[in-house]
Simulated assay, not measured.
Amino acid sequence: MNESVDLNRTHVPHDLADRIARWFTKFMRFFADTFFAKRYGHRAVVLETVAAVPGMVASTLQHLKALRRMSDDNGWIRTLMDEAENERMHLLTFIEIAQPSRLERFLIILAQGMFYNGFFLLYLLSPRTAHRVVGYFEEEAVISYTEYLAQVESGYHENVPAPRRAINYWKLHDDARLSDVIIAVRADEAGHRDVNHAFADQLAAD
């Protein structure tokens, strides 16, 4: 777990594609804030089911691209698959902390189906924009987990013991609490932010 990661880093839009990606992210943030308000545990459960989609979609399409071109992928496929797996671990962890309601489970099915197909099409049309969208999504995730951590530390949410799954995955100490899990997850999201913005920059340069 890297707690020294820069939590305030953000990408300033350079062109229309970047601005559209940023606008779309803010639009989605508005709906998440409206529906979940300060129920950050439940927000994490629903949004992490969506967050695990881009890495798998992008890795699949990068894999097919490498096969078509019979060329090396320069490590993109493994990085993206690791990102998808990491986001899935976030989901499994928060399911143990905040059990989703029937409505939230329905939203998960709806949101995942819509987002998977939408992101797939976006990646086919513009991989650069797709990675930029994910980079902005992760910027918002860092903000959300920072707000969640503040609520836990203030006593608004109980600082429950960390699930054993989280302790094993992030190698936390045995008496770790929810706040430790949030710090670890937030660091992951900041890492995904930097990777996806870097991928978008590389595609723009190419």
Rank of each mutant, 00 (worst) to 15 (best):
M1W: 09
M1F: 15
E3I: 12
R9Q: 10
P13T: 10
D15F: 06
D15W: 06
A21D: 09
R22N: 10
K26H: 13
M28Q: 11
R29V: 14
R29T: 14
T34S: 12
R43T: 09
V46S: 03
L47H: 02
T49G: 00
M56W: 05
T60L: 06
L61I: 04
L61K: 07
Q62W: 08
H63A: 09
A66G: 08
R68Q: 13
R69C: 06
R69D: 14
S71A: 15
D72K: 14
D72R: 13
D73K: 12
D73L: 08
I77V: 13
I77F: 09
T79N: 09
M81V: 09
E83F: 03
A84L: 00
E87M: 00
L91S: 00
E104W: 05
R105W: 04
I109C: 05
L110D: 07
Q112S: 13
Q112L: 05
G113N: 14
F115P: 04
Y116F: 15
F119S: 07
Y123V: 01
L125E: 07
L125C: 11
P127K: 11
A130S: 15
A130C: 08
H131N: 13
V134T: 11
F137T: 08
E138F: 06
E138Y: 08
E139Q: 15
A141M: 05
V142C: 10
T146E: 15
L149V: 08
L149G: 05
A150G: 09
Q151G: 15
V152M: 10
V152N: 10
E153S: 10
E153F: 05
S154A: 15
P161M: 06
N168R: 14
N168F: 04
W170M: 08
L172A: 08
I182S: 03
A184P: 01
A184W: 04
V185I: 11
V185F: 03
R193V: 00
H197D: 04
H197E: 03
H197R: 03
F199Q: 11
D201V: 08
Q202G: 10
A204D: 13
